[in-house]
Amino acid sequence: MAVSFQQIEEKLKTEARRLLESGEVSLVLAWGKGYDEKHPMPYVAKCPSDADGIVFNEYCTHNPARYLVRYPRGTKIAVAVKAADSRAVVQLIQEDKVKRRDLVILGIPVYGIKNPKTGELIDGKTTCGLYNPVLYDVLIGEEVHGQPVSSPYAVLAEYEAMDRDARFAFWKKELDRCIRCYACRKACPMCYCDPCFIDQRKPRWGEKSPEPAGNLMYHLTRFHHLAGRCIDCGECSRACPVDIPLYLFHKKVAKDCEEMFGQAAGMSIEDKPVLVNFRMEDSDKILE
């Protein structure tokens, strides 16, 4: 069964128009036209006629959930989401950043999204690899049947084979290249802190301009802040102009978290944010 991007786009437009016309929501977060077909952009439709500007094609990689927290609490929002994007919505609900009742989730089952930079298929290697949204109100299209073939953590095999020193050397080399454009942070739906710790001056946690020690401080802390929260959309890594494989680190932490606490980020709104939730039966492995 082939996914028809055209059909999804049409259906998105129709739903968006309907929701805006009825006043059910005051805005719809989706994708719109960019400077060419390969570069669609995040898009906000605020009135029924804006719905025509919605675009959906194989390059719609962005995670619209990123923009949910921009609007005042209580704003009624419809948000178009692919599988991983829907997990971000779930995680934000868990963290009480948005309320379930304020959202209309337009879930898009899809596979075949491509990285505009490389043209490669986006799959479980750089994202969670799921096909279907985990939570939605309106399903745009039909559920994609079947399961992703490989685990989202399979890509870690090579990395996990390295010893401690090799891992450190690996990340040192990667992170030394960071130019501190903060695109990763801007793209991430879970990076909503304002100000981000790295921008604070009292205390100054690390150097703001690109240099090895500050880069390490920024990234290690960011990885840590996303532990148990990263929903594996892979947007950070795709946003990175120098192609640092941030997803590897995030996946490793997510895997550890899942193994220790039996919970993956953003899978159910019944879950509580795992690292700030205490359960008697929690594993003590984290202390080792």
Binding site: K97, Y192, D194, P195, Q200, K272, V276
Partner: peptide, 11 residues
């Protein structure tokens, strides 16, 4: 500075 994550409330 508070980003309203409510971690403090939870822990």
């Amino acid at each position: 500075s508070c980003c309203a994550c409510q971690n403090c409330v939870r822990v």
